[in-house]
């Protein structure tokens, strides 16, 4: 959600905002606090370090330095968590451009996204077999 928000891709921002909230027992307030400013949101140091790496990945992969990685590790992140952070932030730099590049029609309104987020949180991303 943070990457999509900074890339100004409303569809990705709002759908993953809802998915994150559904993974966090419906805590939209926490998700929105992170969206406004991860530096002041009530999250762990580890998550704050990972979000800072995600933002650097968004600006450009080259922004990430071995010092950023060392800081995240000092805050308790494993190499798997750091790798997944880079992977997810990079993937959304693709999805954001895919959605905006193809000028995809996207819904408006909280309810549509809330339902989408609930489905993403519960079922994941592979469509169920018909």
């Amino acid at each position: 959600m943070s990457v999509s928000s900074a890339n100004d891709c409303h569809f990705c921002r709002d759908s993953h905002r809802a998915a994150a909230a559904h993974h966090l027992e419906g805590d939209y307030a926490l998700v929105d606090a992170v969206r406004r400013d991860p530096r002041t949101a009530p999250i762990s140091h580890k998550l704050r370090s990972l979000l800072s790496i995600a933002e650097k990945v968004r600006q450009g992969g080259k922004q990430v330095t071995s010092e950023d990685v060392a800081r995240a590790r000092a805050d308790g992140a494993t190499d798997l968590e750091i790798h997944d952070t880079v992977l997810i932030a990079a993937a959304f730099c693709m999805y954001n451009r895919y959605v905006d590049g193809l000028a995809t029609w996207t819904p408006t309104g909280h309810d549509a996204y809330d339902l989408m987020g609930q489905r993403m949180a519960k079922q994941g991303y592979v469509p169920p077999n018909p």
């Binding site: 992969g61 990430v64 071995s66 880079v86 990079a90 993937a91 693709m94 451009r97 895919y98 193809l102």
Partner: peptide
């Protein structure tokens, strides 16, 4: 145009995955 868009979108992913992991 679809393939061109999908190609540049995919490389906006790869560039970050590759450079971000060093």
């Amino acid at each position: 145009i679809y393939y061109a868009i999908t190609t540049y979108a995919l490389f906006n992913f790869y560039n970050r995955w590759i450079a971000g992991t060093g």
